[in-house]
Amino acid sequence: MSDNLSIILTAGLVATAAGLLGPFLVLRRVALTSDAVSHAVLPGIVVIWLIFHTRAPLPVIGGAAVFAILCVLAIDALKGTNLVRGDAAIALVFPALFSVGVLGITRYASDIHLDLDSTIYGEIAFSPFETLPIAGVEIARSIVLLSGVALVNILLVVLLWKEFKATTFDPEFSRTIGISPKLLSRLLLVAVAITAVTAFESVGAILVVTLLIVPATTAYLLTDRLWLMVATTLAIGWISAVAGYWGAVSVDASIAGAMGLVAALCFAIALFVSPSYGLIARSLQRRRRSRSVQRELALAVKPQGAGADT
């Protein structure tokens, strides 16, 4: 497999895994959980280094996952006290975990250059270099790992589609029919944590955060059907992966950054030209409405009352 294809496939798999969960995060107004996770995993990496003296990807992903899950559950618990709102809970938990990680590095691990850029902020350009032999073919490790995560997410969302839909739309009703919103919320957050952690290592944190938030938000501007929102999210994710790679190569810039910018561009376009919720469509609607109201008023004041039947 060529390096180009391998990188695009890696990014596409991240877009798939993230795109399945992103719409639910956006609809539940917890989009920024993804950014929280991206910072909260640091102590996990430090702990793994301290215990096993390794930076091998699988143990690192394991350690990071533990702290990512800790982070999302702590946010959930803090929110559950009803003393702290969801957004503030996020802003309290992740900097604390990040601080623990930074202190761990300076105290115990400063000699190993466990520097943030290369460890949690993986670089997608290097993803094709680590390979695993699968059925005699060398396949990038990131592709193998991310395929697994994407598959799990597909299963999760397909199998629990109606449960996720019901608990996101109307949690109280869900409780009366025996579907626990708390359970589904935790399941979703744990899935986000594991997806994010696995993807950080291959493509870097910011691309994962971007792909969890931006395509789903863009899709939210474009559609009124949940399944269509998920489908649109996936499409925008893949467009970002392909176009971003092409753009990065042609101007020799960061691949992850370029992919993020393409996603942002998609958002900007949707914000302006979305047929139902875009700025242009809405201002046209407003103008049309006011014009028709004016016309009716004009008809109504005519003495013959021609507008009586409108």
């Binding site: 956006v26 107004r29 917890v30 989009a31 920024l32 993804s34 950014d35 957004d87 910011i206 691309l207 955060v209 971007t210 938030i213 931006v214 789903a216 938000t217 939210y220 501007l221 990065a248 101007v251 020799d252 810039a253 960061s254 992850a256 950054g257 370029a258 992919m259 993020g260 910018l261 996603a263 942002a264 958002f267 914000l271 919720y277 875009g278 700025l279």
Partner: peptide, 27 residues
């Protein structure tokens, strides 16, 4: 101007600006 909620709006700005920053740094 849109029906996007504060958390998603923050998230979009955050990701877009940081992506831009990375691209500028590589440049």
């Amino acid at each position: 101007t849109s029906r996007i909620r504060p958390d998603a709006a923050i998230g979009v700005v955050l990701s877009s600006f940081f992506s831009l920053g990375i691209v500028l740094l590589t440049y």
